[in-house]
Structures are given as structure tokens and as C-alpha cells.
Amino acid sequence: MNKIIGTAAVTAILAAGPALAQEDFIPAVVFDMGGKFDRSFNEGIYNGIERFREETGIEYLEFEVTNEAQREQALRRMVRNGASQIIAVGFGQAPAVEVIAAENPDVNFTIIDSVVDLPNVRSVIFKEQEGSFLVGMIAAMRSETGAVGFVGGMDIPLIRAFGCGFEQGARHVDPEVEVYQNMTGTTPAAWNDPSRGAELARSQFDRGADVVFAAAGGTGLGVYQAAADSGQFAIGVDSNQNFLHPGTMLTSMLKRVDVAAYNAFQDALNEEWEPGVLNLGLAESGVGWALDEFNEDLVTDDMRAAVAEAEEMIVSGELEVVDYRAANACTY
């Protein structure tokens, strides 16, 4: 009996704990250009914080940046509205976070995809090259023409890292494989130009590629559509995009931004949040590749085995995937 009362009391205390914390805990998120329903990077974040909201019942503040000038403004408004934990999505927000975080040392910030070195900022970055390496292997094993392609969004080192990892993975399987790489543009508009994405993909198909990997936000949707139209394979990015075109979506390279976002809020709620840099790779399950009912017929057992083997080697450090950002060059 005592035990039951004891348990009840503990439960009551546990229940009251977060409730007390909730009073002054206002999470907020500022999405990047592309919007929270880009079915890719931003949507991953959205899924993570939605999970947090469903589990805890705590509502969050949100803002979708539609032009670059809004970033600082949006963060400042979140601070003014009393937010105590703000997730800034995307490398583009780094300069804004630097300013606002320095101005408001009491507010905690989590920036995804970039590093800001301040005592109240947690920077979450990913080893995109490792996930891209695995899908590069899958692409090269699936390819019948011996040529695969990569379509990037904006031409920045981060996106180059995707392409570089993809190339290494493809070459790991077949050193002779041809890897075409195209970037959509050099401005943020490159994240939202599906027409151009489709043309770039078609140009790669014309040159003989039969699998194309896109890391280009909304532009990628045009790439996947072009692949479906031409009957070639495409590989999604960030979120699991296999469902978009069943039959031609070979797989998706996963970047667990949802987990990063969820953890930021959860840690803050549990008062375990700490600043610093989190660099998430295969070993931390921060990146990976998607296998579900939409593509299980496309990825054969041999391919799965080969990928699993490479994954182990990367985790153990036996196989090193070069990060483009280390030297701004794809030399391996």
C-alpha cells in the first residue's frame, strides 16, 4: 500500500516538475527559406518539433523566413515574445544568431547546420558526407549505365560536401563510375527552382546517368519529377522522400534534423541543455539512408549487405569519408 502511495507521489512530483518548468519555457523555431513543408530539410525540423508538441503538449512559436532580411528580425521577435529556447534552422541564419545571441545571453539558441561559437548557442552539424557516401554506393550498384548524377541547390561548401560524399561512395563501389555534378545556382533562390532542377536532371540523363541524387530543397522536387517522367531513379535528401514517386525513388539520404530539433527542446525542458558543437554522423545515427515499403524492391539484399559493411567500416574509422569542408576540395 505504502508502495502504491509512494509511486503515486513520485508520479505527482514528476508530473508537477515539467508543469512548473513549462511556465517559463517557451520554445520557438525560425524556419529557413523553403518553408516548413518543403518535404525535405525544413519539414524534418517540423516533424521533430511536432513530435515534441504532441508528447509534451507544449506549444511553440514559429516563423517562416521568406526573404533573407527577415532572419534577424524574426529571431529578435521571438526573443521579445519571451522565447527561452530558439531553434534557428539553416546555415543562412548563422550571422543573425551571432548578433541576437550575443545581445540576449539569457536566451538559449540551437542552430542547425552551422557553427556559432557563443556560450548560449548549441550548434548542430552533420556529417552529410557519410550519409551521402552510402546512397552513392546504392546509386552506383543500381546504375546500369555506369553513370550517376548529383544536383545541388545553392553552391556552398555544405552542398559540395553532399556531392563529394556521394562521389566517394559511388567510386567505392566502382572506381570507373562517371559522376556528374550540377549546382542550381549561387543565391538562395536556388532552393526553390524546380524547373531548373528538372532541366539539370534531364541534362544528366541525356549524358547517360540513370540515378540522380538531389540535395536542393524545393528544387529537388523538380529533379524527382524529371526522374519519374524519364523513368530513371532519383535519391531524396534530408527527410524520407521515398513516397513521392514510388518505383523511381531509389532511396533517401536521411539527415536526422528531426531528432536534433526534438532533442534541443526536450533537453531544454529537462534543463539538460548544453551549448557547444554536436557533430552527428553515422556513429551517432545522425545520418543514414531510408528503406521502407516504397523502395524495398529496388534495393536488393546484396546492396543492403554492401552498405551495411561500409557503414560498419565508417563507424569503426576503418574507412574515412573526406569532408569537402575540411579543405574546400574533394580530394580523396
Binding site: 533562390a189 526553390n192 527552382d193 524546380p194 524547373s195 531548373r196 528538372a198 522536387l221 519529377q225
Partner: peptide
């Protein structure tokens, strides 16, 4: 025709 959905600012 060229794409299969509307995306914001797609006229670019």
C-alpha cells in the same frame, strides 16, 4: 506541364 505542382515564386 514543365513541372507538376506550384511552388512559391516558381517563375523565378
Amino acid at each position: 506541364a514543365h513541372n507538376a505542382s506550384f511552388v512559391r515564386d516558381m517563375t523565378a
